[in-house]
Design a protein around this nucleic acid. Sequence first.
DNA 1: CTGAAAGCGCTTACAG
DNA 2: CTGAAAGCGCTTACAG
Lengths: 330, 330
Amino acid sequence: MATTLNDVARAAGVSRSTASRVLAGTKRNVDPALADRVFQASAELGYRTNAVARALRTQRTRMIGVVVPSLQNAYFANVVHSLSSEISDHGGGLLVAASEDQPEVERERLLGFRDSIVESLVVVPTSRVNSGPAINEVAESLPVVQLDRYADGVEAPYVGINNRLAVQLMVTHLRSRGYERLLFLGADEESSAGGERIEAFKVYKGSGDEIRVVPSFSVEAGRAAAIEIMEHSELPGAVVCSADVLAVGVFSTLQHQGVSIPEQVAVTGFDDTQLLELMTPALTTIRPPLPVMAKATIEALADLADGASRATVPAAAQRFDPGLITRFST
Amino acid sequence: MATTLNDVARAAGVSRSTASRVLAGTKRNVDPALADRVFQASAELGYRTNAVARALRTQRTRMIGVVVPSLQNAYFANVVHSLSSEISDHGGGLLVAASEDQPEVERERLLGFRDSIVESLVVVPTSRVNSGPAINEVAESLPVVQLDRYADGVEAPYVGINNRLAVQLMVTHLRSRGYERLLFLGADEESSAGGERIEAFKVYKGSGDEIRVVPSFSVEAGRAAAIEIMEHSELPGAVVCSADVLAVGVFSTLQHQGVSIPEQVAVTGFDDTQLLELMTPALTTIRPPLPVMAKATIEALADLADGASRATVPAAAQRFDPGLITRFST
DNA sequence: CTGAAAGCGCTTACAG
DNA sequence: CTGAAAGCGCTTACAG
């Protein structure tokens, strides 16, 4: 049906080899006159290289699978977006799937990718304790890197942020603005990042500060926490949330109750999603350097692919420094 | 390197044909004893079918490309999510790309997919007037369907919602609750859906109602509109927004200015994104039946693929009825 | 029911 | 610089 390389070669009066060399842009030199004829014939016939055939021959598909907990979560949407712009320059494609926060569906997506055209995988594990086995299984056949979160017992490389620095940045900022009695809202020990942030806050915690662990990274959990906060006789000076979704829940509930922010209490986020700009005033937050992280992830994948043949051991974990985004909630 | 079908066949002591028949699950019957040996050998060797080779042979990749204006927009994230769950049952994959609201990058993404492994395409055109040419170009080689929005001059099938009904539902609801002097906030004539909603409101517009067209579907535009609204001596009874992002901008700005919603003014959204649940109180909105639309989209793609051989003409446009989601902002 | 053979559409040593 | 040939890993008529 469709035009093939054979058709082009015939029309240009050259061999398939030559046609391939000019169309695929091989290094090899080709007589300019012949090349012209090939280009011409190709254009006239509306030739398109069959990507599948090429992939079979070259053993490269340049397709990367991505599994995130959810696409509807603004932060993960940002992660996918960064990955996407990183590889579109690279001439590859991104196959996206969501694990819906369930380890079983995560496993299904992972295995689905493993038996597909995908040649490597990036995963944001949904659960620190339960995501490991499926990731390891799939890592036997494909290069895999963990992004943003890691799962226990997995030796695949990890790219994340320096959560310790993030918390330090935020705490220092708040103290310098005179806020005291910080309330840190941690969540979801199931996620490695969540656990790390709680640990980090313990390091910088002052005597008047407090830590509360809520059941999940969700707006709902933030709302519930806000309601609980209001029941106390005294408001904290600042509510330091370990995720933007939490911050949004806290913020909108407090504001609706008539608490003025930042006058009566400061509220801060974590992740720098667009959600924060929906609030008035906009919230101070931590920005992970997503573009840099995406780049490192893709490179780690490439290293793994090479490593398979060169028997190199790639770096196990890379952490990048986040930035503090100061806005009007502090 | 990797185990191939040949290895399995040899280990099981059968021909490659037989091995293929049992592993690929062809209809053809195979002696159960042989089949067992094949399964066993396959398991022992850790055999994985090479998806690229299979695709080349069967001429099917089951990969669908999706181009949306942005992944960071909650509504499009929902669209992608629906598509994704529709096809993951189908045993296919979704390649995702964002056009960043620019027709030129949309064209680039579209062409990129056309020269890739993707076998069909769904696009949410970024511009009604400028997206057409690239879509038509790509539609020459691949089945393409337009989802949610359509571009002028494109004959590829379109799947969308009945915007007329949507507006009617909302207006009827507001009137039944006693709201008068409705202010309709329309936007972005560049998008077909935006234009349709404005036209629809004109149909149901009462004498005390008003239409304002803002420059874009964005939170910023909503904020600006809210500020303008506050400058008038009298507030409208309800602000009917033609997108959730607009509603969020209007809502959060009004609320921050001390206007109480819905007592002083009602605010409604359009799209049913999760954004609305971030607000307190949550907003009334219109819900497009995304799962149904995703299903229709995938089917339209399949029809197009068949049509290529059967010379059938598929339905040009399918519209689905949205629902009204009543919450506390009205 | 089974196997030998052809072929999907490319790219790339290899020989000239 | 160019072409004939091999081969990537499968599936599927075709013959038995």
